[in-house]
């Protein structure tokens, strides 16, 4: 998994609440089992007009289509970001597009974990703070970039203000070191076997042959 230690980049505001994973990655765009090459489908319903037809074109109003945000690597969104379907395709599309972090007041739980598993940092900040960051970035998106430091868990705004955020230390370590969750758990093989030995006595009915 790709490490996340520090990142500096352009932040794009998409300040809508309840952005669902259908919007991030419409089901109709998921055409193969593959995890790669999905960035072209990111936010397809909003990014394109007449998607999939001869008349297909970019929607000039959509933030990521605007010149100053076209290289954005950070998203600023409203609360309950990534709600809805568990499809990890949504995160694979964000990563493929080049998004490294999302800052929102809250996240859909499954989406949050999917982000972590793919080296995309989900950051929870207060809605007011996000609104002010968005205002500041909008003054000059390419100059007013945001800095993120995962070692100290801070977002540093263009004005030099720092905003602390919290992340469970297990997730933090996993991202900082780019660890694979399965490898980490496989080191606990003995504990897992010991659990099962006891559990099968306690709940024999839960085990199928």
């Amino acid at each position: 998994m790709k490490k996340f230690v520090t990142h500096r980049g352009t932040a794009a505001p998409l300040l809508k609440i309840n952005i669902d994973t259908d919007a991030i990655m419409p089901s109709r765009e998921m055409k193969t089992v593959s995890k790669t090459g999905l960035g072209k489908s990111l936010f397809a319903s909003w990014r394109f007009i007449d998607r999939g037809t001869d008349q297909e074109k970019l929607n000039p109003e959509f933030v990521l289509n605007q010149q100053e945000y076209s290289q954005a690597s950070i998203l600023l969104t409203g609360r309950n970001m990534g709600c809805g379907s568990s499809r990890e395709f949504a995160v694979w599309a964000l990563v493929d597009f080049g998004i490294r972090a999302i800052i929102a007041p809250s996240f859909g739980a499954i989406f949050f974990t999917n982000c972590i598993r793919n080296g995309l940092l989900p950051i929870v900040l207060d809605e007011q703070v996000i609104a002010s960051l968005a205002d500041y970035v909008a003054l000059n998106p390419q100059a007013n970039q945001l800095n993120i430091d995962l070692k100290t868990c801070h977002v540093i705004g263009p004005d030099g203000m720092t905003y602390p955020f919290e992340l469970q230390s297990g997730f933090q370590v996993m991202l900082l070191e780019g660890l694979d969750a399965i490898d980490v758990t496989n080191k606990l093989g003995k504990e897992i076997d010991a659990f099962k030995t006891t559990d099968i006595q306690k709940r024999p009915w839960a085990y199928l042959n």
């Binding site: 568990s86 499809r87 990890e88 995160v91 499954i110 974990t113 999917n114 598993r117 793919n118 969750a181 399965i182 758990t185 496989n186 897992i192």
Partner: peptide, 13 residues
């Protein structure tokens, strides 16, 4: 519900 990576984790471990 979980993502595909978490599901893979559960399948393997």
């Amino acid at each position: 519900g979980v993502g595909s990576s978490e599901c893979e984790h559960a399948l393997v471990t």
